[in-house]
Design a protein around this nucleic acid. Structure first.
Length: 919
RNA sequence: GCGGCAUUGGCGGAAUUGGUAGACGCGCUAGACUUAGGAUCUAGUUCGAGAGAGUGAAGGUUCGAGUCCUUUAUGCCGCACCA
């Protein structure tokens, strides 16, 4: 009976689909389990072999949980708003919706071929009005809420208004507009003039996580700073809770650490410095309160609001020139060029402890967005301040005993304080504490925690995104009525910005609400992906994002699998979004993703041929990889990428290569054994002469001809082989290259296994067979629970081998093996189940339980060690106690002979394992 | 600079609690069947002829270390003018 995987897989998929086998019910007595993949952006290129890695892993777990009797929610959808579709639209005029839908169809087709157990009835698309209705709804809730710093939670803005009315006498004297402007400082979704990352090439602003080293992550275009009126989300208000929540979730340490870095908590103090000749002091933030005695100058960020107050007339021209220069520097230039720059304001501050007059400078090494945008500079103990002081020739006062600051600053927080008044003699850490106490008591300052995390800029000057449910009246924004949601994305005849520079929605006709103009910006990519996991729970609900009871049943994502590239974007935003909805009582869990696993990337494995470019080269001769270091070829070959699909096990398919591209039509070769085409006139039969290709691990990309399409693998080997092989490649969380070389082994295993299912018998299984089976049950169960999917495949292979040796063809064994195989290779498992005469789907069967009794061995071999060296072995009963073992071993003739009358110092017995005699 | 992770045969990688390192697969080597198949099966395959050595390197703890500790090298990832 041939392993006809095509037939097996088509039949299984057709039956599942017909029976709606993977439909998850929102009401069930079973325990819920929610397994989620990060939904993909449907790109035009389709899936490559790297995409399904995480999907296969989550599918294995989902199927396992299902077999264990859980009601499993395992959905899939599409993050379908985004820039590529819009850029494609600008180039070709094709509507982004058309290309996006086409891509989605292609993705679904590819995914279905691999046999995932998604409940497709729950599919969501972020560009679907029925979906983005709830994105807009959430935005309205955020606009109508503020963050209460005391309770550390979001509350309705109406409560804040009430608070103002009752406690703030000035409130009622304000005009409506003034009141609104004031509330804008509190709303969680707010409109403000902010310095933004503006990417001229993309024509839009970008969030911090969309910018890397001054270049846009997408496209790699320069990004500059610009002040624009933009919507933002007050994510920074949640910094403390986002940090603290990490302790309660089961994510990898590295991912948590990345988020902690991004949130960037630092404990320090805010201090006030008086300005000479002015009433109002200004405030700085420092983590080194102990170093106040060494402050020799102050520095303001160029954008600081203090700047206007402290610049004296004589310095005005110089300062303005400097500010102008900073403004026009791109972020990239600023980072690349770390030369010290700055300008003196002409004003002096007073050191509150020494009463010294210290000059105030402006420099762009101080960031306006962090702390108060102003610092006290301690050149002796901060390398940046040190560089600045050296450049402007400012005094440097060492504060720590033994610190040599003649060449560089001493940044470490260790040593005894000197030159520091009442702090002298204290250790740095004690000094920090003492100074904090001092400034609190004297009122100079207060203890303060600062976060690096910024608010998320939420406006994008794009077409293909969610429209804001916002209209403008008298220059103030208003939310549209919730009953009018969704506010549909309008049609435009041009996807580019308007000629007067307004966003693409400026091209829309009649883009108004009740006669008022609507917002022209759209929401960023992360808007739609921030709460999609909640929508899956109840995606057909037209009354709410998710019904409260339904949410109370599923609660949260139990297992989330996806790439690590979302560590500081999506995974921060959705935690924020989730906490916000939680605060307002719409959902019942504070954290969205209980356990999270990052699957590694699958890199490409490129193949090369080596064109001869030495003397007399025709450009038509290719040298086998094993020969390129020979003296006659060394340095005279040029590697050329060759399509990996015409290379197998690094052996080039000669005929396919000649047919691949016209330029290789007459290609000649020097083969692995050094012979040439002239020696082998009838070449073309691969077994005879081999051309070996070189290889390298590179990114999977079209230009390197190393893209492997899962469809091709499914076509050639079947979905089950693809699934098993992707898991077999290595640990889930590690990055690894796709290497087609080993796939035959996995395929062979399935073939061999399948051959055992011909005419299975009803006989009772033997002890050995049961032992094999239960060993397998134990191993597979452990593997799946520990996400060690790669080690399951060898276990199956070993079991297959053992059972084949026993000539086992018994239904009682084989049907159980089919269940164990189901998570990994569901199609063949389904066919095996039927072959054993079992009724229904194997996917509904019950996961077998390991009976340890079958695993007990009558005898176990104890290696007997002398001082750690194995001298001989003896067989003893597995059930023997430690004392029994020791007694038997000591009485053994060989032991006595080796001891030769001596008394051992120590005898170590590890039951079932080993005996070590120390002499 | 700070933080995290990794390093095991020709290759991908096993070794779950400190207990016989190299499972399983690829590749390779022989053989069988055949007769052209890139199929299947059998045996072998860490290095070394051998004693022996051996998990990036050097120390340490332990009867016993791939696993724990210290130092160090290399690679990957994250953050980075964050006061």
């Amino acid at each position: 009976m041939e392993y006809n995987f095509k037939q097996i897989e088509q039949q299984a998929q057709a039956r599942w689909e017909k029976a709606q086998a993977y439909k998850a019910n929102n009401h069930s007595d079973k325990k819920p389990y929610y397994v989620l993949d990060m939904f993909p952006y449907p790109s035009g290129a389709g899936l490559h072999v790297g995409h399904p890695l995480g999907y296969i892993a989550s599918d294995i777990y989902a199927r396992y949980k299902r077999l264990q009797g859980f009601n499993v929610l395992h959905p899939m959808g599409f993050d379908s708003y985004g820039l590529p579709a819009e850029q494609y639209a600008i180039q070709t005029g094709q509507h982004p919706e058309v290309t996006t839908m086409k891509n989605i169809d292609r993705y679904i087709e590819q995914l279905k071929k691999i046999g995932f157990c998604y409940d497709w009835d729950r599919e969501v698309k972020t560009c679907d009005p029925e979906f983005y209705k709830w994105t807009q709804w959430a935005f309205i809730q955020m606009f109508n809420s503020y963050f209460d710093p005391v309770q550390q939670k979001a509350r309705p803005i109406a409560e804040l208004v009430k608070h103002f009315e009752q406690t703030d006498v000035t409130w009622n004297t304000l005009t409506k507009k003034q009141q609104q402007e004031r509330l804008m400082n509190y709303r969680i979704a707010y409109l403000s003039d902010t310095k933004v990352n503006w990417c001229p090439k993309l024509g839009t602003v970008l969030a911090n996580d969309e910018v890397s080293e001054g270049l846009s992550v997408r496209g790699g275009y320069p990004v500059e700073q610009r002040v624009m009126r933009q919507w933002s989300l007050r994510v920074s208000a949640y910094a403390g809770r986002l940090l603290e929540g990490l302790d309660r979730i089961d994510w990898t340490d590295s991912l948590k650490e990345t988020q902690r870095n991004w949130i960037g908590r630092s404990e320090g103090a805010e201090m006030q410095f008086n300005i000479k000749g002015q009433e109002e002091p200004f405030t700085i933030f420092t983590t080194r309160a102990d170093t106040v005695f060494g402050v020799t100058f102050m520095v303001l960020a160029p954008e600081s609001e203090y700047v206007a107050r402290v610049v004296i007339d004589a310095q005005k021209a110089e300062v303005e020139a400097y500010l102008d220069r900073c403004k026009h520097r791109t972020e990239r230039e600023r980072i690349a060029d770390r030369k010290v720059t700055g300008v003196f304001t002409g004003s002096y501050a007073i050191n509150p402890l020494t009463n010294a007059e210290i000059p105030i400078y402006i420099s762009d090494y101080v960031l306006s967005g962090y702390g108060t945008g102003a610092i006290m500079a301690v050149p002796a103990h901060d390398s940046r301040d040190y560089a600045f002081a050296k450049h402007f020739n400012l005094p440097i006062i060492p504060l720590i005993e033994g610190a040599d600051v003649s060449e560089q600053s001493f940044d470490a927080k260790e040593g005894k304080m000197i030159n520091s008044g009442f702090l002298n003699g204290l250790e740095v850490k004690e000094a920090i504490a003492k100074m904090k106490e001092y400034i609190t008591n004297t009122g100079i300052g207060r203890v303060k925690v600062n976060y690096r995390l910024r608010d998320a800029i939420f406006s994008r000057q794009r077409y293909w995104g969610e429209p804001f449910p916002v209209y403008y009246k008298d220059g103030m924004p208003y939310m549209i009525d919730e009953k009018d949601l969704p506010l549909m994305l309008p049609e435009v005849d041009n996807f580019k910005p308007t000629e007067d520079g307004r966003p693409p929605l400026g091209n829309a006709k009649d883009w108004t609400y009740k006669g008022y103009p609507l917002e022209l910006n759209t929401m960023p990519g992360f808007a739609g992906s921030s709460a999609y996991y909640l929508r899956y729970m109840d995606n057909h609900n037209s009354e709410a994002l998710v019904d409260k009871n339904v949410n109370a049943y599923w609660r949260q994502v139990n297992l989330y699998i996806g790439g690590t590239e979302h560590a500081t974007g999506h995974l921060i935003y959705s935690r924020f979004w989730n906490k916000f909805l939680y605060d307002l009582g719409y959902i019942c869990e504070d954290e969205p993703f209980q356990k999270l696993i990052n699957q590694g990337m699958i890199q490409g494995r490129s193949n090369f041929v080596y064109r001869y470019i030495g003397e007399g080269a025709t450009g038509n001769l290719y040298i086998s990889y094993n020969l390129i270091d020979n003296p006659e070829y060394k340095g005279k070959v040029q590697p050329i990428h060759v399509n990996v699909n015409i290379v197998k096990n690094d052996i080039l398919d000669i005929m396919a290569f000649r047919n691949w591209m016209p330029e290789y039509k007459d290609a000649q070769f020097v083969y692995a054994d050094g012979t040439t085409d002239e020696d082998n006139p009838h070449i073309g039969t691969p077994s005879e002469k081999q051309y070996i290709c070189g290889w390298a691990v590179e990114k999977m990309s079209k230009s390197m001809f190393n893209v492997v399409n899962p469809d091709d693998v499914v076509e050639q080997y079947g979905a089950d082989t693809l699934r098993l092989y992707e898991m077999f490649l290595g640990p889930l969380e590690m990055s690894k290259p796709w290497d087609t070389n080993g796939i035959d082994g996995v395929h062979r295993f399935l073939k061999k296994l399948w051959s055992m299912y011909e005419n299975p018998s009803d006989e009772q299984p033997s002890k050995d067979e049961l032992k094999s089976l239960h060993k397998l049950i134990k191993k597979i169960t452990w593997d799946i629970e520990n996400f060690s999917f790669n080690t399951s495949i060898p276990a199956f292979m070993i079991a297959q081998n053992e059972l084949a040796t026993l000539k086992c063809n018994k239904k009682a064994i084989l049907s159980q093996v089919a269940i164990l195989l189901t998570p990994y290779a569901p199609h063949i498992a389904e066919a095996m189940w039927a072959q054993c005469g079992e009724q229904g789907f194997v996917i509904d069967a019950q996961w077998p339980v390991c009976n340890e009794e079958y695993l007990v061995e009558d005898n176990v071999k104890y290696p007997i060690q002398f001082n750690g060296k194995v001298k001989f072995t003896i067989e003893l009963s597995k059930s023997a106690t430690k004392d029994d073992v020791e007694k038997t071993v000591m009485e053994h003739a060989e032991t006595q002979r080796l001891l030769n009358g001596a008394t051992p110092k120590k005898v170590i017995v590890v039951p079932g394992r080993i005996v070590n005699i120390v002499v």
